[in-house]
Write a protein that binds this DNA or RNA. Structure first.
Lengths: 237, 237
DNA sequence: TCAAAAGTGTTTACCTTACACCCATGG
DNA sequence: CCATGGGTGTAAGGTAAACACTTTTGA
């Protein structure tokens, strides 16, 4: 930040790209938009857009998230900066530096069309062929981060509806990690972490009709897990 | 990345800021430059500069690191993207989006003047008063990240010279975390992690003259620590 | 011979794992 | 009464913390 001259810099476009994940149908799915025009016409891409002059990247990401998902109150959602992608040539048209964000949302209704022409859809990770630009890379980075975050943070509850059963929470972990977990041990670990989940007094839900009704829980105030909930065989990352 | 028009965006300046840490004199120190002109004239700031048209942010950061530290071969150094700071108004002159990086280097000789007029110096974290711009925030974020990274990666060896003793490695941890560690247990944990350190055959160093000579080790090929080396009382970050 | 620093051994407590078992509900 | 999923108990193995102890050097 020295040798500063207001007019001596190359103009860069600054954008945000969003990797919005959900768990539905027993799969980790990501929100994608289909590109209408070149380059990469017809290919799927991560939603995103320009950072406006008065916005921070975080504000822009939250605005785009609201536009693409149709969620009205986007203020409570977990949105985390992933990293910034700045390779020259990552967009063939011009120099674009993109700040990527990751968001985890519950299983929502199919997204409405959104503020833009392009159609937004939930698709399984890896089920959309090669993505536009360097979005395959961004998606891979985001997916890896999400898996790691479940180990030492309480973020898994972000995938759940406001009230959920421990079985549902366990399925989040199993889906994201792609591994089976021991139910009794999972249960103990979650309940042994203060503030991870709080019981909803008296409530119970019949899960799938069959079986014993399960107690309902809400996300608690804790944000980090001590001790962490490690993946079996775990090479985190 | 829709509604794309090459000329419809506000021009942003894109810069990199570097939080370069070292451990010297039993302290965690950071590389700072003194600002010559307004704004924040006379204040200390993190080194950094513009991303040039042909560069990625990573390349720019590596170039700045070489310029500021005088290290000739900067290619092997660990340089990691921290996050991007994009608040409007973080630079009073214009819209500047800055990609922050963290680097860990061994105890180097005092930096040469560097390619720029400003003097670069190692200063203890927090010993330079209020930094320019939002660099206090960036430095705090970087410091927190470094502390957390020591827990589950092999990065501590980046602070060490090519050959080091386990006592020196332990001092890195104790300095960065600000806690004392049990030597026998530290030793066992480090040696029990395959690829963290490798013995230098036959070599030994007399540390401080007194005491038994210590065996020398080199950094091994491993990058992550399984299991992690947790801080005592640890709320990791 | 003492202080200082490296290195080894051992005990104890805790945590995780694996798995057996009981409970409640629908078909 | 059986299948299904929720929930509890427990014994065995491994990891980590605490600390006593030995070794090798300089003063």
């Amino acid at each position: 930040m020295r040798g500063y001259d207001k007019y001596a810099f190359e103009p860069f476009a600054v954008t945000v790209d969003l990797a919005v994940f959900t768990v539905r149908a027993g799969e980790l799915q990501v929100l994608l938009v289909e590109r209408g025009q070149a380059p990469y016409a017809g290919r799927w891409a991560l939603p995103g857009g320009f950072v406006l002059p008065h916005e921070s990247a975080e504000t822009a990401a939250r605005r785009e998230l609201a536009e693409e998902t149709g969620i009205v109150d986007v203020s409570g959602l977990h949105l985390e900066q992933l990293r910034t992608y700045s390779e020259p040539g990552r967009d063939p048209r011009m120099r674009v530096v993109s700040v990527a964000f990751t968001a985890l949302v519950p299983d929502l209704p199919e997204p409405r069309g959104g503020g833009d022409a392009a159609q937004a859809r939930w698709l399984p990770c890896g089920g959309a062929g090669a993505l536009a630009f360097d979005h395959d890379r961004i998606l891979a980075d985001a997916r890896e981060r999400v898996g790691a975050k479940l180990e030492y943070t309480c973020l898994a509850t972000s995938f759940c509806p406001p009230e959920f059963t421990l079985g549902e929470l366990q399925q989040i972990y199993e889906t994201v990690w792609g591994t089976a977990l021991d139910r009794p041990n999972f249960r103990r670990k979650v309940l042994a972490t203060p503030g991870f989940v709080e019981p909803v007094p008296g409530a119970a839900r019949l899960t799938g009709g069959r079986g014993k009704p399960a107690a309902l829980y809400r996300a608690g105030p804790a944000t980090t897990l001590h001790p962490p909930l490690l993946r079996p065989e775990g090479r985190p990352s």
